[in-house]
């Protein structure tokens, strides 16, 4: 019987695992291998250089800047996106005034909002980035500065993407804008599976909206939040498209929006230093692994069965 079981499992797993090995594992192994070579990416001729690429990374100011920006994104982006997503979802599902016949209800027009929040998700990230590039334009044409002028703030005309102190935040704002809708929908789905009697009981005990959120909604939604955090983390560690399309240079001003994935891209495809670039890729992999480790550890929490 035992024998049969394994054959059964192997039969199902062999093909997907083989595909996984060829298309995911082997590129990884190759990337690690190439990071020890001086491969240019433009010819198939290269030699082994040992740890030279990594050594160079440690002295590379831009690498550290990119890493710092990535970590900042990793901290801020999930927090803001998920926070907003939770807040909106809560308001849409639970936050409304109590109406006759229903224990809990969303704010007025919540069905409509749900659809609207999802709009940005439908647009391709490239389109979003191009649109925002125009919104951030600092002269008359730009929507943001135009708005500021319209409400009488003529003296406040920031350079947005042109200002090293603001640029990365501008990028973050766009990423929050296009991701938050998805989490509103995701969390809404999660919330609708929470039994209503829990809310009813809490309300009977005199709990306000604030307490219901932290004592009931959030704990019961924890699994979903955790998944969301992982996905947002991945998006934060990547953020290539927005930086490439929107920012100055791209990657600037003064490297203020440089991220590892974009730096990797310039190294391999502009400077012809694919070996160095794969070393960057390995560094990114290590950061990702650490992030995954932390998430797994923090997220380990007894699951409530209901």
């Amino acid at each position: 019987m035992q024998h049969g079981k394994y054959r059964f499992i192997v039969g199902f797993l062999a093909l997907p695992l083989a595909i996984y090995a060829v298309f995911v594992i082997s590129p990884f192994v190759q990337a690690i291998y190439y990071s020890f070579t001086d491969w240019t990416g433009l010819s198939s001729d290269y030699s082994w250089v040992g740890l030279e690429n990594y050594d160079r990374l440690l002295d590379d100011e831009i690498f550290w800047k990119a890493l710092r920006n990535n970590l900042l994104l990793l901290l801020v982006l999930p927090l803001v996106t998920l926070g907003l997503g939770l807040f909106f979802a809560f308001m849409l599902n639970v936050g409304g005034k109590r109406r006759r016949g229903a224990v809990i209800a969303g704010v007025r027009g919540s069905g409509f909002y749900k659809v609207v929040y999802f709009f940005p998700q439908v647009l391709s990230i490239a389109i979003v980035a191009v649109l925002f590039r125009y919104a951030y334009e600092p002269t008359e044409g730009g929507a943001l500065n135009g708005f500021l002028r319209a409400i009488g703030l003529d003296s406040v005309q920031p350079l947005w993407l042109g200002d090293p102190d603001l640029a990365l935040w501008c990028v973050m704002a766009v990423m929050v804008w296009c991701n938050v809708g998805f989490y509103v929908v995701l969390f809404s789905a999660g919330m609708s599976s929470i039994p209503r009697d829990f809310y009813e009981a809490a309300l009977l005990d005199g709990a306000n909206r604030f307490t219901t959120f932290f004592r009931i909604t959030l704990p019961l939604l924890w699994d979903t939040v955790q998944t969301g955090w992982i996905y947002m983390g991945i998006i934060a560690l990547d953020s290539f498209a927005v930086v490439q399309i929107m920012t100055i240079g791209p990657g600037g001003p003064d490297y203020s929006t440089e991220v590892l994935s974009f730096y990797l891209y310039t190294k391999s495809f502009r400077d012809g230093q694919a070996g160095q670039a794969t070393a960057l890729g390995v560094a990114l992999l290590i950061v990702t692994l650490i992030f995954a480790g932390i998430v797994m550890r923090l997220g380990r929490r007894e699951r409530l069965e209901f």
Partner: peptide, 24 residues
């Protein structure tokens, strides 16, 4: 859980780079 972990490793890293790895 294990599948998630593996997926985590796979998704963001720059696999595109090696997809053009130096063939023969």
């Amino acid at each position: 859980k294990r599948a998630t972990a593996a997926g985590l490793v796979a998704a963001p890293a720059a696999t595109f780079l090696t997809s053009c790895a130096s063939g023969d």
